[in-house]
Design a protein around this nucleic acid. Sequence first.
RNA 1: GCGGGUGUGGCGGAAUGGUAGACGCGCAAGACUAAGGAUCUUGUGAUCGCUUUUAGAUCGUGAAAGUUCGAGUCUUUUCACCCGCACCA
Length: 804
Amino acid sequence: MYNHKVVERKWQKYWAEHQTFKTGTDPKKKNYYALDMFPFPSGKGLHVGHPEGYTATDIVARMKRAQGYNVLHPMGWDAFGLPAEQYALKTGHDPATFTDQNIARFKTQLQSLGFSYDWDREIKTSDPKYYKWTQWIFEQMYKNGLAYEAEVPVNWSPDLGTVVANEEVIDGKTERGGFPVYRRNMRQWMLKMTAYADRLLEDLDGLNWPEPVKEMQRNWIGRSVGAQITFKIKDSDRTFDVFTTRPDTLFGCTYAVLAPENKLVKEITTLGHQADVEAYIKQIASKSDLERTDLNKDKTGVFTGAYAINPVTEKEIPIWISDYVLASYGTGAVMAVPAHDERDYEFATKFNLPVKQVIAGGDVDKAAMTGDGEHINSGFLNGLNVKDAKAKMVDWLEDHNLGQQKVNYKLRDWDFSRQRYWGEPIPVIHWEDGETTLVPENELPLLLPKATNIKPSGTPESPLANLDDWVNVVDKNGRHGKRETNTMPNWAGSSWYYLRYVDPHNDEKLADYDLLKQWLPVDLYIGGAEHAVRHLLYARFWHKVLYDLGVVPTKEPFQRLYNQGLILKNHEKMSKSKGNVVNPDDVINEYGADSLRTYEMFMGPLDASIDWDDNGPASTKKFLDRIWRLLVNDLDVKAVPQAKIVDENDGSLDQIYNQTVKKVTEDFEALHFNTAISQLMVFLNAAQKAKTIPRAYAEGFVQLLAPVAPHMMEEIWQVLGHNESISYAAWPKYDPAKLVQRQVQIMIQVNGKLRGHFTAAKDTSHEELQTQALANENVKKFTAGKEIKKVIVVPNKIVNIVAK
RNA sequence: GCGGGUGUGGCGGAAUGGUAGACGCGCAAGACUAAGGAUCUUGUGAUCGCUUUUAGAUCGUGAAAGUUCGAGUCUUUUCACCCGCACCA
C-alpha cells in the first residue's frame, strides 16, 4: 500500500539534498520565469487558498523543466507591514522576531506541499540586505524628482495611527481593520506616479493579462481629456483654474464651486460669510470619508460671498464651497453648469442657483440634459454639436489666454509615508538650516533601529521619533539634523522583489543587468485578484522608473498574469470568525500533499471561486491510489506487475494515450488544470480496462501527472526502473498520426433533432453519408410523408435532413 | 448609478455553431467479504414508455425573443448573483 507520509518526506528530502530545483543556467536552454505573489507571513499560517496559485505555477515550472527550459521558480516573504506590527503591539512581541517565526512556519508548510522552489534565492523584504535596495530605489527617485515632500490631503486613520493610500481605502474604511478614515492635510513623502500615468495606461495593451484587470487599471488611472479654464475673481487680482471635460458648456456656467480644503477659500471669503464658511469646513473635517459618502444624496455647501467672472459671458457668478468637489482631483475647483451636469443640477436646485440651458433638448426644469445636441444661448457656439463646440471653445480660450486643452487623471501621486515602525526607514535627513539630504548611497542600508516602544504616536511622527540616538545626527561640520521618521508603506518591498530573485546575493547592484536581461519579463505571474490595482500598478510604476534609469531591460515586469479564484466554504469566504477555515496541514496529514494539490487543481477553472468539498481530497487520493495499484506490484512494491506492464504494444491504447499527451500538454500551458486531470482520469480508466499497458505509455502517463502529484510519481518512476529524478526526464511527445480515428460516429438529425446515428469509416463521402442517413429506420419514421427539402452533411460529424 | 463577470443535473464542473451533462463527488444496486467507511462492476438530467431484451418519445443550459438546416455557444431585451469604482467635473 502507498504510504504518503513516508514517500512524500522521502522525496522532499531527496530534492533538497540533490538541489533538484536549483535554477538552471545552461546557456543552450531557453529561460522560463514562473512567479508566485509572495505571501505576507501572517500568524495564522498557510490557508487552503495559498496552495491553489502556488500549485498552478509549480505545475508549469515542473513541465517547463521537463521540456528543457532553465526555470526560475522562487519564493520569498513580504515581511514588513501593518498586520505584523499590529499583532506585535497587541501581544508585546518584537515584530522582527514574530515575523521570522511566521516565516519559519510558512516555509515548513510550503515545503510539505512539495513545491519546486529554488530556496537558495529566498528573500524577505525586512532583511537589511534586501531593503538596502528598496532604499536605493527611493533615492534614485528622489534624485530624479519623482519623490518629493508635500503638504497634501491624506487619508488619516487614528485607529492605525497612520495614513493610508487611496488604494487602501475601501468604502471609506481602511482595508486592514476596517477603521474609519479622516481627511487632513499632512506633510508626506509622495512618489510622482502621475508622471507615468500615460505610459502605465498605454503599455497595458501589450500585456497578456486578464482583460478585467487591465480594465480596472485603466479605470483607476482614469484619463480624461478636457480643458483647464481660468476664472477671475471680482474685485480682486486673484484667479483660479477649473478643470472641465465640457468646455463647450461654459456659456451655461452660472456659479463656481471650490473644495472646502482649497487654499483660496480663506482668502476670498467675505467678512459676512466667514462664520458660515468656517463652520462648514469644521463640519467637513470632523467627518470620516465614509460619513461623507453617506451624505451623497443630499448635497451640502455654503456661499463664500465672493464672485467670479465667467470668462466667456463676462457675467458675475457666485463662488460656493462644497464637499462634492474633491480637493485632490483636477484643480479642486469646478465650473458649475447645472443645466448639463447632474451633480451641479442637484446642487443648484437645492440652493436655488440659476440654471441656464445651452444645449437644446431635454427638459431642464426636471433634470440635467447631459446628451449631445445643438448649442443655444452660446454665442459663437450656437448650432454646433458637443464635439465641435468643445474644439471651438478650446481654440477660443487659447486665443484669449484664458485656458487650454488639458488631460487629467484620477490616478494620484502615491502617498509613500507611514507613521509606523515596521517598515523601511526613508533614508533622508532634515538639517537645521532647512536643507534636506539623502543618506549617502555607501551608507545604505539605513537600518531600522531596534525599539521597545513601537506604539503609534498618534501624530504625524512615527515611533522612530522617540529614539533620540537614532533621530539626531551631526555632520562633520557640526551641523545638526534629524532623520526622517516616516517609514515606507509595505507595498514598497513588494514593488521590485521579482527583480531580486534573479540575482539575490548581489551586494553591488540590486541585480545584474545581464541576468535581468536573461530572465525578464516574468513569463507567468499568478496571484490573487485583490492585487489587481495596487501591487500591480506600483510594481509597474517602479519597473518603468528603473527602466528609465537603465537598471532593468524591459518596459513591463510581468508579461503573463493570471488570477486564481477564491476557495469558499458554503459559498462564503473562509474566515476564523465563521469557523469555516480548512487547514492544509490537516489535509496533507490525512490524504497527502499530492492529493491536496491534485484536488485543488481538479476542483474547477483556476480563476473561478469555488466551494471547498470535504470529500475532494479523498476523491483525488482514490484516483492516485488507483494509479499506484495499477502500476506497482502489490506484493513487492519495488516492482511493476509484470503481466500488466509490458514491452509490447497491442495498439489498443494508442489513440487515447496520444490524445492524453496532447491535451494535458496544451491544458497545462493554458492553465486548464481541471480538464487536464480529467483527461488523465479518462486514460487511467482505459488503462485499467486494457489487457496490457505498454511500458512507454505507463511512463509517459506518470510523467504527465508528475507536475501535479510529484511525490508519488517520483516513487513510481523509480519503481519503473529509473535512477534519476523524474523532474528532468524529457516531456512526452505525441504522434499526430495516432490521434486520427478510423471509424467515426455520424449523428443523424431530422429538422435539427437527433433521430439516430451510425458508424462510418473516416472521410466517407457526402453522398454515401446521405444515403445511409436516409436509410435509417427511425429516421424514416420522421421523414415519411414529407418532402425532403435539403440535406446538410458535415463530414465525419453529422447529417441533418430538412423535411416538410 | 457606472464598469466588468457569471448563470448548465442533488453538488463541483465539461462541451472549435454540429451527440448537452466529459471527469469527479453524492446516491442506488450488485460482487468480493466475518465485516466494510477499502476495492471492483453496473446504473444515475426530468417526465413518459419499455420493463423479457433492444430500442424509443417529449421536455431540458436563469427568462423572453431573434439569426441559423442546427444555438449552452452568436445578436437583442430582461432577471438574479458576484467583483471593482463610487460626487473624478
